[in-house]
Design a protein around this nucleic acid. Structure first.
Ligand SMILES: [Mn+2]
Ligand SMILES: [Mn+2]
Ligand SMILES: [Zn+2]
Ligand SMILES: [Zn+2]
Lengths: 151, 151
DNA sequence: GCACCAAATGCTACAATGTTGCAAGACGAC
DNA sequence: GTCGTCTTGCAACATTGTAGCATTTGGTGC
C-alpha cells in the first residue's frame, strides 16, 4: 500500500496548518497519498485503511478526500473510468499529465509532461487548468490481446 | 435542439453501411449528434428524443450510443462530470480538445487545438489516444462569482 | 403483400459511485 | 476536566450505467 517512495513529511502539521482537526482518517489518508506513486481511487484508499486497521465509513472517506482537495493538499483526477482518483499535491504550481491504461485501469503520473498552454480558444473563455490524459496500454499489460480490456 | 449547423448528411446510409438496422432511435440520435455543435450527454439526448416525440427507453438509448461509438460514428468524451458526452465523428483521423465550463457544465469543442504528441513516457507504454480537456469558465458564465459552480 | 428470424427494444432488477440530513462522538481550546 | 464545534457514522437517496430476458420489429426472400 504505502509505496514507501517519499517519506511521510509531516501530514499532521499540514492538516493542522489548515485549521482542520487532526483525525485518524485524515492523517492516514494523507500519508497514504503522499507515499503512493499512483493516484488512488476511493476504493483503493478504503481498502488500505481497512488493511491498516483504521475503521471508517464510506461517507467519511468521501468527505475526507473532499476536504483534502478543498485545502489544496490533494488533487482529484478524472481517470478514464467513472471514479475519481486522488493524489497528494507536492508542488501546487506544478501540474502534470497522466496515463490511463485501458487494459488494467492503472493510472500513472507523467511528471515530465505538462499540458500545453491553451491557444486560440473563443474570446470570453477563461482557462483555469488543463487536464491531459493519455490512453493506451502500460508496460505490464503490453500490446497483447484485447481481452480483458477495461471500458 | 438541432442546432442546424451542419446538414443532416444521410445518417440513414451511414447506419445501414455498418450493417445495422435503421431504427427510429438510431436515426434521430445520429442526426441530433451530427447537427449539434456541442457534445451531448445521455440526458440531453434523451430530452431531445422526448421533445421530438420519439418514444424510447433509457437503456435503449445507452445501447444506441454504445453502438454508434463501436461503429465509429460517434465518440465518447469524458467531460469533467460523471456522465459521458457524445459527439458525431466527422473526421475519424482528426481529434480535438474540449473545453469544460466549471460553472455551467457546458462542453465545447476546440477544433483548432490538437493534443500534443506524447513524449518521454516510460518504455513499454503504448499510447492509443490523448484526451485534453481545458477547465475554466465560458463566455456566457464570465469570471463573476464562484456561486453556482459545478463540481 | 406476407412469413420469417436475427437484431433491437422495453422492462425489471441490479451495480457502482457519490450526496444529504441528522444525531452522536471526539478534537482541542480553555 | 469541561465544553463547543468540527467530524463521524448511519440510513436513505440520487445519478449514471449494466445485465437478463421476453417481446417487437426491420429487412430479406418469397
Ligand atoms: Mn499525478
Ligand atoms: Mn468535440
Ligand atoms: Zn495496464
Ligand atoms: Zn459556462
Amino acid at each position: 500500500m504505502f509505496d514507501a517512495a517519499i517519506p511521510p513529511a509531516s501530514a499532521r502539521e499540514r492538516i493542522a496548518a489548515r485549521g482542520g482537526r487532526v483525525t485518524r482518517t485524515r492523517l492516514v489518508v494523507l500519508e497514504l497519498l503522499q507515499c503512493s506513486e499512483h493516484p488512488l481511487s476511493h476504493d483503493e484508499i478504503g481498502d488500505a485503511l481497512a488493511a491498516a486497521g483504521v475503521a471508517h465509513d464510506r461517507v467519511t472517506l468521501y468527505r475526507t478526500l473532499d476536504w483534502l482537495v478543498e485545502q489544496g493538499l490533494a488533487r482529484r483526477i478524472a481517470g478514464g473510468e467513472r471514479a475519481w482518483r486522488f493524489e497528494a499535491v507536492r508542488d501546487a504550481a506544478h501540474r502534470h499529465a497522466h496515463f490511463h491504461c485501458d487494459r488494467c485501469g492503472q493510472v500513472v503520473c507523467l511528471e515530465g509532461l505538462e499540458p500545453a498552454p491553451a491557444t486560440g480558444l473563443p474570446s470570453g473563455f477563461h482557462v483555469d487548468r488543463a487536464e491531459l490524459v493519455l490512453h493506451g496500454s502500460c508496460a505490464a499489460c503490453g500490446l497483447g490481446s484485447e481481452a480483458g480490456r477495461v471500458r
